[in-house]
């Protein structure tokens, strides 16, 4: 009996007609405009000359082998890397036409506009209600919290499952529900962009499908950037795909962006041989 495999070897994942096929060849309205971005962890150059435009209300997937810098890149976009000691960033990274790393820009303010969902569901050790309400409360948003909680949970397709147990601990939920709670919590802060770092890697296939459906629904209001190891996922949900890889340089290994474009094109007619090798499963 053949072993079940999560990755189809030597065949292209086929993008679904819905989103990907309609993406224009070039990004017209860019939320992020990134040029020649370099990033260092200490002496280690993790990103080398990355240039990418990320379109408004589109889903952009970042794919590539382990260590290619896609998560590092994602965490540059909301200045999460600021939390790490001994890091350095150079190059252009404009968000809505403004340099994200200009002195005087508050990282905290940025992260309210650019939310993040993490690899492992990480609800706060609090009730379901508090998980959604706490950040708006702390951040001083002038809103009716009850309404905001219901709205956010509904938007994250979780309301019907939790409306009768809002006071229960968030840990009483399943992994997939916890991840949707984390998405609800992110939405509650009313961000413009949602960054997702392999949001389904800790979830089973059914929970994964629910998150993917949710992303497609959220696209009408938010710009979404998702890091994924799962190429089928990138093909299913994203409008555009950026393929990163690792390059060996004299001073060490660095992540580089090989190519980016409409998902349909990247998966059917990539212009770089390395992309083709990766998506067909010959490499990575």
């Amino acid at each position: 009996m053949p072993e079940p495999s999560t990755q189809v070897s030597y065949s292209r994942p086929v993008p679904e007609a819905g989103g990907a096929a309609q993406a224009a060849p070039e990004v017209v309205d860019a939320v992020f405009d990134i040029a020649d971005l370099n990033f260092w962890y200490g002496a280690n150059r993790a990103l080398r000359d990355v240039s990418l435009r990320i379109g408004r209300q589109e889903i952009t997937a970042l794919i590539g082998p382990s260590g290619c810098g896609k998560t590092t890149f994602l965490r540059c976009l909301n200045r999460m890397n600021d939390l790490l000691p001994d890091t350095r960033i150079e190059g252009r990274l404009d968000f809505d036409g403004e340099p994200l790393y200009r002195p005087g820009v508050q990282a905290i303010e940025i992260r309210r506009r650019i939310g993040m969902v993490f690899q492992k569901p990480n609800p706060f050790p609090k009730s379901i209600y508090d998980n959604v309400a706490i950040a708006p409360k702390v951040n001083g948003m002038k809103v009716n919290l009850d309404d905001l909680v219901e709205e956010s949970l509904s938007r994250a397709a979780l309301w019907n499952e939790v409306k009768d147990k809002l006071k229960q601990s968030a840990f009483s939920l399943s992994g997939g529900q916890q991840q949707r709670l984390c998405i609800a919590r992110t939405i509650a802060v009313k961000p413009e962009v949602i960054l997702m770092d392999e949001p389904c890697s800790a979830l089973d296939p059914l929970a994964t499908i629910r998150i993917e459906e949710l992303m497609t629904e959220l696209k009408s209001d938010y710009t979404i950037v998702i890091v994924t190891h799962n190429m089928q996922q990138a093909a299913r949900v994203s409008d555009r795909t950026a393929f990163f890889t690792v390059e060996d340089h004299p001073e060490g290994r660095s992540g580089v962006l090989v190519e980016s474009g409409p998902t349909h094109k990247i998966f059917t007619a990539p212009s770089d041989q390395r992309t083709d090798d990766y998506i067909t499963g010959r490499f990575g």
Partner: peptide, 27 residues
Amino acid sequence: VPTAIREAGAGLGMPRTATLTRMLLPT
């Protein structure tokens, strides 16, 4: 206290002191 909680607070744009007093210390 798991790093994930610190990151979650930061990711929501919560000030560091708020994450400390409302999440980390109670935990």
